[in-house]
Amino acid sequence: MSEGNRVTGISVRGFAVASATAVTSVGAAVGVASGDEQVRSTEPVEVVAADATLLAEIPAGANAQLHTASLTQQAESQSSAAEAEARRAAQEAARLQAAEDAHDRRAAEEEAERAAAEAAAAEEAEREELRVAAAAESAASAPVQSSYSVAEVQALARQLVPADQFQCFSNIVDHESGWNHTATNPSSGAYGLMQALPGSKMSSAGADWQTNPATQIRWGLDYMDSRYGSPCGAWDFWTVNNWY
């Protein structure tokens, strides 16, 4: 470019980008010398970038990359949170299931223990019934005697009365008749080991109630069980009232 065509002032609006395109645009704006003619410009030349919009999009592209990275990070964070929540839910479900299983096992164990206890109690009751039946059969088959000693009557009672109730039964008989199966109260007419009043009520246990102590013992045991629940229940009442 000739000295006469020097550009005295150029103001470029937008981004100052030094490029061949920008220089070409400036040259086109101020003119180029043709032949011997020289054109001098005395006014400042203002050049607008050929594609300001394209240049302005450069930072927008960088922002898009940052925005994309931010969205990716958010998605990863949300995915991690979802995985953590899924693990927590699975752990809680496993804990609840384990607790339920433990409860079911304990309930089954308690049910088995209860069934075993009931079976043992039923077996014990059956053994006791067999023992009582055998004792009653033995007493019934014993030959009737014209007289019985206290020891013989007590032996019969031990065969018929449950072992854990015998002492209470014995306490009552001691006080009522002194183990004399023919004892009679001259005032009331009460009769026998238990001093039944009237004595004839013992016939419900056998027709030989007057002479067979085993029949009297069976009647007395049934009476104590039905009225007081047991010989010990009858004895508790006797100790308070001196009768039963």
Rank of each mutant, 00 (worst) to 15 (best):
R227V: 07
Q216A: 08
D225W: 11
S226G: 07
A205N: 07
S204T: 15
A214G: 12
L221C: 10
P198H: 07
L193G: 03
A214R: 03
Q216P: 10
L221K: 09
A207W: 15
A190D: 05
A190P: 04
R218H: 06
T215D: 00
S203H: 11
A207I: 08
S204W: 11
G192Q: 00
Y223P: 06
L193T: 01
M202P: 04
I217K: 03
D208I: 02
L193E: 00
W209P: 01
D208P: 03
G206I: 08
M202Y: 04
G192R: 02
M224E: 08
P213Q: 05
S187G: 10
D225S: 11
L197G: 06
W209M: 00
A214F: 03
W209D: 03
S226M: 10
Y228Q: 03
Q195P: 14
Q195T: 12
G220P: 06
L221W: 04
A190L: 15
W209F: 13
R218E: 02
G220S: 15
P186T: 12
A190I: 13
M194W: 15
W209R: 07
S187W: 12
G189T: 11
Y228S: 02
G229A: 12
A214I: 01
K201S: 06
M202H: 04
W209Q: 05
P186F: 07
A190M: 02
W219S: 00
S204Y: 10
L221E: 02
W219H: 15
A196Y: 04
G192P: 06
P213F: 04
G206E: 09
G229V: 06
Q195S: 01
A214W: 02
P186L: 12
P213K: 01
Q210L: 12
A196P: 10
M224T: 06
T215R: 00
N212C: 00
G192D: 04
Y223W: 15
S203Q: 13
G229C: 06
L197K: 09
S187D: 14
I217R: 03
L197N: 05
